[in-house]
Design a protein around this nucleic acid. Structure first.
Length: 499
RNA sequence: GCGGGAGUAAUUCAGUGGUAGAAUGCCAGCUUCCCAAGCUGGACGUCGCGGGUUCAAGUCCCGUCUCCCGCUCCA
C-alpha cells in the first residue's frame, strides 16, 4: 500500500464525535423509519394496506441479508471440511411432519376468556385456574365456574396448509415447512451415499420456513414467513455432549466476529426441553424491544432419524387414511433392530451400524439481519461546513456485512472528476458492491453513505488528476487519508478484510 | 386472541366539518477543492381501506386492515 500524508481538509477528528443516547422505543422507531427511507425493509404488500407478519427487503436490505447469509455459509460450509450443503424443497411429503411431531404438537385447541383475558388449553379446562378467581375454574357453567365469558375452542395450527395439485383433495393436503431441518433429516441417507462424508459431519441449509405465528410482533423479529440458517451435525452417540458445547461456542463467536456488541449478547440454557431435545441453549440479542432469540443450539439426540424410520413404516397406513386427518394416524412402532434401519450409519472403523446423534445450530437469517441493523445504528454529532454540530445517522456495520463496501465520488461535477471517478468505479465493482454518486454536495453524499453503512468513500479531486492519488474517508471516524488510485483495491482488501 | 395507542408526501409531523400544508429527503440545473452549504426550478397525496351522518368529512360515527406498546402465544 502506498503511504500518504493525511489530507489537511476540514474533516473533523474522531474526538469531535459524540454518541447521542436514545431511549429504546425511540431508537426502534428510528431504525424502522431508516430501513424504509433507505430501502432496507418494506412491509409486504404495503400498497394494499399491508399483510401481517411478512416483510420485503429492498435493494439495500437485500444486499445486507445476502451478506449475512453468505457469512454464515462461508463459516459453516466453505471454511470447514466436515460440513456439506443442501437445498431441500419447501414442499415435502405430509408424513414428514407426522413423523417429526409437528402435526400432533401443533394442533392444541385453545380457549380465551374475555373476562379475565387468560388463555387456556381446551383439553385442560378442568384443571385450569381462572385468572381473576384462582379458586375457580374458567367458564360460565358447572362446578366452581368463575362465570367468565369464554371463546369457542380455536385450533392454533402453526403449519400453513396447502393443496398439492390443482384439484382439491384431502389426500393431497400438504404443508409449507415450519423448519428446514426436516429436509436435512430426510436426505441424510442420500448425502451419506452420494458423498464421502464420514461421522462426525454436518449438513447445512439456508431457506424459507413458514409458521402461522399467533402474534407477529416486533418488526421483522417474529414473522410468518422467515428464513432459517440451519445445520444438522451428525455425530457418534456419546460424543454429543462435547459437540453440543463446541457448537454453542462456535456460533457465539460467529456473532461476535461480525461485530455484535458482547454486552448485548447472552446465552440462555433451557430448563424446559422440547420432546426431541436433550439440551438446548439459545443465543439471545438485546434488541431495543428486549432480549430475543437469534439462534437455538439443540442436542436433538437420535430422535429425528428414528422418527423418520417409523414414518416410513407408516406409509401403508397413511395411504389407507380416509379422512386425511394425520393427527389420528398412529405412527408405526420402532423395529427391534431400529439401529440397523434405513437412516442408520455404518461406521467403517468400529464395524458397527447405529443411528447418529444430532446437534442443531438453527439461526434466523432475518433475526440476525435485524440484530446487525439494531447493533449498527448510531447517532453522533458531526460539524457541518460552518462548524456547527449536526446529528449524523450512521450504521456501523462490520465491512463483511455492509451492503455497499465503498462509494466512489467525484469532488466536483466538472473538470474531469466524474470521468475519472467513473473509471475507478467500474473497475472496483467487478470485485465488490460499490456505488457511484455525483449528485449534490460532497458532504451530503458522505452522509448518505453513512446512513446505509458504507465503510469507505473514495473521492476524486484535482490532485487526483495531477498525481494520481485519491482521498479515502472512513465512515466511523470521518477521517481521510490520501492513497494512490491504483492501490485502492488493495487498500480495501487490507483494511476491510474483504476478499 | 384481549386491552391501549397510532395511521395525512419517501421520512418526521401540523391541519377549528368548508380549496391538502411545513420541514427534511428526492429529481434537474447553477454554484462549490471535502462533511446534510447556497440559489433556481420540479415531481410526489384517492388523508390506510370500506361504509354511514352531513349541503359539505382528513376532521364526527361504524366496520376493517396494518404498525407500535402491554398481556397471551411461541411443539
Amino acid at each position: 500500500m502506498s503511504e500518504s500524508t493525511p489530507s489537511q481538509s476540514a474533516a473533523p477528528s474522531p474526538s469531535q464525535t459524540v454518541s447521542i443516547p436514545l431511549n429504546d422505543h425511540e431508537r426502534m422507531e428510528k431504525i424502522v423509519a431508516l430501513t424504509k427511507r433507505r430501502g432496507f425493509i418494506f412491509q409486504s404488500s404495503e400498497l394494499y394496506g399491508g399483510i401481517n407478519g411478512a416483510w420485503d427487503y429492498g435493494p439495500v436490505g437485500t444486499l445486507l441479508k445476502r451478506n449475512v447469509k453468505d457469512a454464515w455459509w462461508r463459516a459453516m460450509v466453505q471454511d470447514r471440511e466436515d460440513i456439506v450443503g443442501l437445498e431441500a424443497a419447501i414442499l415435502m411429503h405430509p408424513m414428514v411432519w407426522k413423523a417429526s411431531g409437528h402435526v400432533d404438537g401443533f394442533s392444541d385447541p385453545m380457549i380465551d376468556c374475555r373476562t379475565c383475558k387468560k388463555r387456556f388449553r381446551a383439553d385442560d379446562l378442568e384443571g385450569a385456574v381462572c385468572g381473576l378467581k384462582p379458586s375457580k375454574h374458567p367458564g360460565k357453567e358447572g362446578r366452581d365456574a368463575c362465570g367468565g365469558d369464554l371463546t369457542e375452542p380455536r385450533n392454533f395450527n402453526l403449519m400453513f396448509e396447502t393443496a398439492l395439485g390443482p384439484l382439491s383433495d384431502t389426500s393431497a393436503k400438504c404443508f409449507l415447512r415450519p423448519e428446514t431441518a426436516q429436509g436435512i433429516f430426510v436426505n441424510f441417507a442420500n448425502v451419506v451415499s452420494s458423498t464421502r462424508v464420514k461421522l462426525p459431519f454436518g449438513i447445512a441449509q439456508i431457506g424459507k420456513s413458514f409458521r402461522n405465528e399467533i402474534n407477529p410482533r416486533n418488526f421483522t423479529f417474529r414473522s410468518r414467513e422467515f428464513e432459517q440458517m440451519e445445520m444438522e451435525f451428525f455425530c457418534v452417540p456419546g460424543t454429543d455432549d462435547e459437540w453440543f458445547q463446541k457448537w454453542v461456542e462456535t456460533r457465539w463467536q460467529w456473532y461476535l466476529q461480525l461485530g455484535l456488541k458482547k454486552d448485548r449478547l447472552r446465552l440462555r440454557p433451557h430448563d424446559k426441553l422440547a420432546h426431541y431435545s436433550k439440551a438446548t441453549t439459545d443465543i439471545e440479542y438485546l434488541f431495543p424491544f428486549g432480549w430475543g432469540e437469534l439462534e437455538g443450539v439443540a442436542n436433538r439426540t437420535d430422535f429425528d432419524l428414528r422418527q423418520h424410520q417409523r414414518g416410513v413404516r407408516s406409509l401403508a397406513a397413511w395411504q389407507k387414511l380416509e379422512n386425511g386427518d394425520l393427527a389420528s394416524l398412529p405412527l408405526a412402532d420402532e423395529e427391534a433392530e431400529y439401529h440397523k434401519g434405513k437412516l442408520s450409519y455404518f461406521d467403517d472403523e468400529k464395524k458397527q451400524r447405529y443411528i447418529p446423534f444430532v446437534i442443531e445450530p438453527a439461526a434466523g437469517a432475518d433475526r440476525a439481519t435485524l440484530a446487525f441493523l439494531c447493533d449498527a445504528y448510531d447517532e453522533d454529532g458531526a460539524p457541518d461546513a460552518q462548524g456547527k454540530v449536526e446529528t449524523r445517522v450512521v450504521l456501523r456495520f462490520h465491512p463483511r456485512i455492509a451492503p455497499v463496501k465503498a462509494a466512489v465520488l467525484p469532488l466536483l461535477r466538472k473538470d474531469g472528476h466524474p470521468e475519472r471517478a467513473e473509471k475507478l468505479y467500474k473497475d472496483l465493482r467487478k470485485r465488490w458492491m460499490v456505488e457511484y454518486d455525483e449528485s449534490a454536495a460532497i458532504g451530503k453524499r458522505y452522509r448518505r453513505q453513512d446512513e446505509i453503512g458504507t465503510p469507505l468513500c473514495i473521492t476524486i479531486d484535482h490532485q487526483t488528476l495531477t498525481d494520481g492519488t485519491v482521498t479515502v474517508r472512513d465512515r466511523d471516524s470521518m477521517t481521510q487519508q490520501r492513497i494512490a488510485e491504483d492501490q485502492v483495491a488493495r487498500y480495501m482488501h487490507e483494511t476491510l478484510g474483504l476478499l
